[in-house]
Design a protein around this nucleic acid. Structure first.
Length: 509
RNA sequence: GGGCCGCUGGCGCAAUUGGCAGCGCGACGGACUUUUAAUCCGCAGGUUCCGGGUUCGAGUCCCGGGCGGCCCA
């Protein structure tokens, strides 16, 4: 009997040793008893499955065989045994291919060994000639084979796959094996990310890395996760945004930088929020927010084409056209269109509170005019914006890191990109006046004293960096997970994060 | 945090009013040399998420708990 490390009960097969698991474990013992290794160290492939298809699919005729011998490997997804002939579908990281396994080619003993030893779910390596069956299916006519890894747990149902969301998210590896759609979503994710990397590199951007452990949490309004560094005996936060470090790099002389930043926010979970998620932030010296609009609309359109082949996507029941240019509208203008009111952060607080009351938007006494306008926008307007739209010119009061608008001192040069009511990106002409920045930080600090635990702390080193001179700079943050949701046509963020945050599996008593 | 829904064999799903826990795939045994979710014959497999309650009788109803999904805050 093989022995294995005993997993906690709640992670073990239920019932603890079901028949199929036991049978597969017994097979491992038989294989070892014969002197073979059910988990060999290596297999030399001559081709990936994709390469076999590329090279031979077009030139081999149905019912014909070549003399070309290949060595391939993959996981057995399906097995159709038919007397002295067996068909198997295998998959590697590049594609799928059929194995043609015949007693005539393998000999009686080896054919029998294939039938007993190689089961659905196992990894197998084979050698054989490339051929096509009568019905034209490209195959490898197996002349020898080797078990590469025995699967002890059976795969989910071959037609319906795995549908239980709990299992799909907790055991993503099974989801990826069993569900084509899960693989499709992540293929889109990885293609979009690599397209954006390429896009930015081609434009002279440098990919950088900045700290994830911050002693001052900044760059966004959110509750951080906190931790402690023992050697220095200091409390630290996991970053909520990389913004302030990236702008320090612009001060340091890097003209164009970007980072795919994993960020952490200690907030609830929903179809739109995971406690850790990925932001693309980028900063470009001598640019303003108009440059950021042009950059991101081109970058998103390019990523869409690279990842899906099209700039048109279907998402949440809507057809969305991601081809540039996106609409450019001001927040004030959009509020007028959707809520039917004229508001502006230059108005007295009392007037804006009255507008809130008339629209049924709750407000708090600590809020100034800018926050009241933002709240009116978020409650009445944001969710109604359909086509990709740059919502421009946010109130200064709620944008502590954005430069004052060149034409209106109560606003900033800031936009958010909204698609079908959801925020995808946030960008500014960056605030580079150190005196103004310190004032804004102080305003945030007094909000924090009034009980707003999401308000910024003052980052004096960041102000010091600005005092050395940040050139005029455009900056942008893009929610990568949310962009992927749009591109892949899924409405839950858990579908685009490989291992979404879950409550730990319960101990069974 | 609130509302609604779900949890049944390894996986996908049934179970009428509270009345013998079933089906398909997979597994296991057998037939089959061109299949494509192969087909055909046979057979095994259950703590119905957990705990309590009502009842002659609970997958089903009630209470509490766990995990998940969707919507709302």
């Amino acid at each position: 009997m093989a022995h294995f490390v005993r997993a906690p009960d709640h992670l073990r097969t239920e019932p603890l040793m079901d028949d199929e698991f036991a049978a597969r474990l017994a097979k491992v013992d038989e294989i070892r008893a014969r002197g073979d290794d059910p988990y060999p160290v290596k297999f030399d492939r001559s081709h990936t499955l994709h390469e076999v298809r590329e090279q031979w699919d077009k030139i081999v005729e149905a019912g014909a065989s070549t003399d070309d011998v290949v060595r391939i490997a993959g996981r057995v997804l399906l097995k159709r045994a038919q007397g002295r002939l067996t068909f198997a579908k295998v998959r590697d990281g590049t594609g799928e291919l059929q194995l043609f396994v015949s007693q005539g080619e393998l000999g009686k003993d080896e054919f029998a060994r294939f039938g007993e030893e190689i089961e659905r779910g196992d990894w197998v390596g084979v050698e054989g000639k490339v051929m096509k069956t009568k019905l034209g299916e490209l195959s490898v006519n197996v002349s020898s084979f080797q078990l590469l890894s025995k699967a002890l747990r059976p795969l989910p149902e071959k037609w319906h796959g795995l549908s239980d969301t709990d299992t799909r998210y907790r055991q993503r590896y099974v989801d990826l094996i069993a569900n084509d759609d899960a693989r499709r979503v992540f293929d889109i994710r990885f293609a979009a990310i690599s397209a954006m990397r390429r896009f930015l590199s081609e434009r002279g951007y440098v990919e950088v890395e900045t700290p994830e452990l911050h002693s001052i949490s900044g760059g966004a309004t959110a509750k951080p996760f906190t931790t402690h560094h023992n050697a220095l005996d200091v409390d630290l936060s996991l970053r909520i945004a990389p913004e302030l470090y990236l702008k320090r790099l612009i001060v340091g002389g890097y003209d164009r930088v970007f980072e795919f930043a994993r960020v952490f926010r200690n907030e609830g979970l929903s179809t739109r929020h995971n406690p850790e998620f990925t932001m693309l932030e980028l900063y470009e010296a001598f640019a303003d927010y108009y440059d950021m609009m042009r950059l991101i609309e081109e970058m998103i359109a390019d990523a869409a084409v690279q990842a899906t082949g099209s700039t048109t996507v279907e998402w949440d029941g809507a057809e969305i056209d991601l081809s540039p240019p996106f609409e450019r509208r001001t927040m004030i203008d959009l509020i007028k269109e959707h809520a039917g009111v004229d508001v502006h952060p230059s108005q007295p607080v009392e007037e804006l509170r009255a507008v809130c009351d008339s629209l049924g938007v709750p407000w708090e006494k600590a809020w100034g005019p800018g926050k009241l306008v933002l709240e009116i926008y978020e409650k009445t307007t944001e969710s109604k914006i359909e086509a990709p739209t740059f919502v421009c010119d946010y109130p200064r009061e709620v944008s502590p890191l954005a430069r004052v608008h060149r034409d209106d001192p109560t606003l900033t040069e800031r936009f958010e990109l909204i698609v079908h009511g959801r925020e995808l990106a946030n960008a500014f002409s960056e605030l580079n006046d150190p005196v103004d920045q310190l004032r804004r930080f102080e305003a945030q600090a007094s909000l924090k004293r009034l009980g707003d635990d999401e308000a910024h702390d003052i980052d004096f080193d960041y102000v010091r960096a600005l005092e050395y001179g940040l050139p005029p700079t455009g900056g942008l943050g893009l929610g990568v997970d949310r962009l992927v949701m749009v591109l892949a046509g899924v409405t839950s963020i858990r579908e685009v994060i490989l291992f979404p945050h879950m409550r730990p599996e319960a101990e069974k008593s």
